[in-house]
Design a protein around this nucleic acid. Structure first.
Length: 444
DNA sequence: TCTGGGGTCCTAGGACCC
DNA sequence: TCTGGGGTCCTAGGACCC
């Protein structure tokens, strides 16, 4: 928690519907629902006109159709248009402050303390946010945002929820608990339906109720991480910093079928489509992963996952497909499958290595702090069988190479045949070394 | 015609290593 | 004899977020 309100949270109002209403004047003032329009679709965004009929995000579209009056528009969504408007908004925020954390397509935190000459008085913050919202409205053709400013991410987010849509709330230092404690406990990040349900028997309805619970009770009920977090957030203790860029940890694709599928051959065809998408996205991001997870939702909505970890990272759709087939074979699908998904995690981040290793990237300016340690001259080509030394893992030999990836098998007296790890080809930790004690590798 | 799709983080048990 | 103790990796499931 900061001593002055300098964290801003911005949330675009009913974003998808608002873009549709902006682009199609006939939809203005009418209920608009964007989401899955098929039999098993759910609502992604409902316009405020639609919310008056009880239509909400995540509601089955079938239910929304029952609730919406005649003339309600049900739209599948135009994600390219949404991304375009989102980019305009995020660019404006980044012009405002050098530190912006984009949370999703329609949400971001802005660190106002990073603005040169920032004045943290409530008056100045209010003026700044008012200007910003007016600029966004102009540049996006009339989209509105709800904005909150507070002494932490949590307070900023809570503040932005207080006046929706098109609202602005600044919670000054010292006012946090006064604002926070009367709110429903669900207002705290990390309290969803399950947590709220477990708190209810304890008489916890509001954040203030939660703040009366002992840490020990929360720990035994919710475990270390969740328990500690609840105890702190209920007291407005939040020192999470803003993170401008996060590296992806997994890539996945999934699909719910219009009708449950029981035929294994049909499921394998779906796997082909999903793995092709995942592979393409991995390659597009310049990454590859080792752990392949098959997700399966059955006719009764029960969900199970099966995963396996490969010796080498892959970004190849066919390799992913064959791995997913094996996982599928472990599962009984006779009763019907409504959803199939394929995910890849354990991503090797060799994007960064490329950034510093390729000729084009070397020409781009590098931050001084990062330029201090020039990458050691690494061989451009690694051949299977060539000896290497890795600084932390000891001796290993190149097991495979390709693209900008090098797979190394480490071996030692106590770990035959040893772990296999994948590096970027220009990883500075990967350097030629003397031949190890052990003999000729068996693979390649 | 109940319940999407893309993610993140946490927990817990077992294997394995030192 | 009675049963270390910590660390990491792997797998499965679940809560939560937008």
């Amino acid at each position: 928690m900061r001593s002055r309100p300098s964290v801003m949270h911005l949330d675009l109002d009913a974003f998808f519907s608002a873009v549709e209403q902006r682009d199609k004047p006939s939809l203005r003032g009418k209920p608009v629902v964007v989401g899955g329009v098929g039999g098993r679709g759910v609502v992604a965004t409902a316009s405020y006109e639609a919310r008056r009929y009880g239509i909400r995000s995540a509601m089955p579209t079938a239910e929304a159709r029952r609730r919406g009056p005649a003339g309600t528009a049900f739209l599948a969504g135009r994600f390219d248009a949404y991304r375009l408007s989102s980019r305009v908004v995020m660019d404006v925020l980044r012009e405002c402050s050098p530190l912006v954390e984009q949370v999703s397509i329609d949400e971001a935190y802005v660190d106002l303390a990073e603005i040169p000459g920032f004045d943290p008085s409530v008056e100045a913050v209010t003026a700044l946010a008012t200007d910003l919202r007016a600029r966004l409205r102009d540049l996006t053709g009339g989209l509105t945002a709800s904005v909150g400013v507070g002494t932490s991410k949590m307070m900023a987010k809570v503040a932005s929820e207080l006046r929706k849509p098109d609202g602005l709330t600044v919670v000054d230092a010292g006012e946090e608990l006064e604002v926070l404690h009367p709110l429903p406990v669900r207002s705290i990040g990390g309290v969803g339906p399950a947590t709220a349900e477990r708190l209810r028997p304890l008489g916890v309805e509001t954040v203030g109720d939660l703040a009366r619970l002992e840490l020990a009770d929360l720990l035994s009920l919710f475990g270390q991480a969740h328990g500690t977090s609840l105890h702190r957030l209920a007291r407005a203790q939040d020192d999470r910093s803003l993170v401008a860029e996060r590296e992806a940890k997994s890539v996945s694709a999934e699909e719910t079928f219009a009708r449950d599928i029981t035929d294994p051959a049909a499921l394998r065809r779906e796997i082909d489509l999903l793995t092709a998408r995942v592979g393409a996205r991995l390659r597009g991001a310049g990454t590859a992963g080792r752990t392949v997870t098959l997700k399966l939702r059955r006719y009764d909505f029960s969900t199970l996952t099966r995963s396996t970890t490969l010796t080498q990272a892959t970004d190849d759709g066919r390799a992913l497909a064959h791995t997913a087939y094996r996982l599928l074979a472990e599962v009984d699908v006779a009763d019907g499958v409504r959803l199939l998904g394929v995910g890849v995690s354990g991503l090797s981040d060799f994007v960064q290595d490329d950034l510093f290793g390729t000729p084009e990237a070397e020409a781009t300016p590098v931050e001084p702090a990062e330029a201090q340690e020039p990458a050691a001259a690494a061989p451009q080509v690694w051949r299977p069988g060539q000896d290497v030394v890795h600084a932390t893992l000891g001796a290993g030999w190149v097991w495979g190479s390709g693209r900008s990836l090098v797979t190394v098998r480490f071996e030692g007296p106590r770990t035959p045949p040893g772990p296999v790890r994948t590096f970027g080809a220009t990883d500075p930790d990967l350097a030629p070394g003397p031949p190890p004690d052990w003999r000729e590798p068996q693979g390649g």
